[in-house]
Simulated assay, not measured.
Amino acid sequence: MPKSKRDKKISLTKTAKKGVALKQRIIEDIRSCVDEFDNIYVFSFNNIRNNTFKEIRNTWKPSRFFFGKNRVIGVGLGRTVEEEVQDGLHKVSECLKGERALLFTNKTEEEVIAYFESQNFEEFARSGNVAQRTVSLEEGPLENFSHAMEPYLRKLGLPTKLDKGIVTMIKPYEVCTEGSILTPEQAKILELLDIRMAAFEMKLKCSWNKNTGFKKYL
C-alpha cells in the first residue's frame, strides 16, 4: 500500500529557534484542515482591519482562515510535488504571495463566490494610504466632539479651543489634499470625522477541491 502524503516530514532546520514551536503548530493546523475540509481558497485582501477580520471569522465558523505567514502555510500544504500533502496542493502554495490568505471550508463554490463578491466597501484609510479627496474644516464649532476631546484634537494638529464648552476651530484647516500620502495624524482625524477613503475588498485567486483538484480564478 503506498505511503500517504500526509505522513511526509518537513524540515525546519532553516528556521530560527525562536518561534519554531508556533510555526510547527501552524503547519500541523494546516495539515489537519486539509483532512477536515473539502475546499481550499486563496484570496487577496486590501485594507483589512482587525474588527473586520474578526467578523469574517465569526461569520464563517466552522470554516478556518489563515492570514499571514505565507511561507509557513506553504510548508504545511507542501511547496513542491514531493512535499505536498495532497495531490495538487503545491499549486495552492504557489499562489500564496503578498497580501493573501487561505480559507478552508465545506461551503459550496457558489456560496464562497457570492460572499467574496459582496465584500467590497469603504473603510477608514490608514497612514500611508493616498488621500482620495481634499478635506477641509472651516472656522467654527465642531459640535460632534465632546469638550474632553479638545486636547487630543489639538495634539493631532487641529487648531482648536474650547469656547463655552464647545470644541471650536479657531481658523480654517486643511486635513488632507487629494493625492497626498496620509500621515498617522491625518488618518486618525479622518476616522474621527467618520470619513472613509480606503476600499476594502477580497478577491479569490485560486481554489482546490479534494475531488476536482486545483482551479485558478481571473
Rank of each mutant, 00 (worst) to 15 (best):
G128E: 10
D29K: 08
K54G: 11
C206H: 07
L156F: 00
L218A: 11
T13K: 15
L153M: 07
D163M: 00
K5G: 11
L162I: 10
G19H: 01
W60M: 14
G213S: 06
R57D: 09
E139M: 03
K54F: 08
S11N: 13
G157T: 07
L77C: 05
N50R: 11
L192E: 08
S207N: 02
N106Y: 01
S207C: 05
I27D: 01
L96P: 11
N211V: 09
I195C: 06
E109H: 12
E110Y: 00
D29C: 05
G98H: 08
A187T: 02
E110L: 05
V81W: 10
G78M: 09
E84G: 04
V175Y: 02
T108G: 09
I26L: 15
Y152K: 08
K8G: 04
A125P: 14
K155D: 14
L77H: 04
A131C: 04
E28M: 12
S180T: 14
N46D: 13
K9C: 06
Y217G: 03
N46A: 15
I30H: 05
G98Y: 13
W60K: 11
R196C: 01
L182H: 07
F65D: 10
K203M: 12
H147F: 09
T15Y: 14
L102R: 02
L89P: 07
I40S: 00
K107V: 00
K171N: 04
K161R: 13
C176Q: 09
S11R: 10
R31F: 01
G19C: 03
D38G: 07
N47Q: 11
S4R: 12
K5S: 11
I181N: 00
E109G: 02
K17Q: 10
V135C: 00
T105Y: 01
F200S: 11
E139V: 02
E174I: 15
S11F: 07
C95L: 10
N39Q: 12
T59D: 14
E138M: 07
K215D: 05
Q119D: 01
T108A: 02
E94Y: 06
R6Y: 11
A131Y: 01
T160P: 06
E36I: 11
C176L: 05
Q24W: 04
F66C: 08
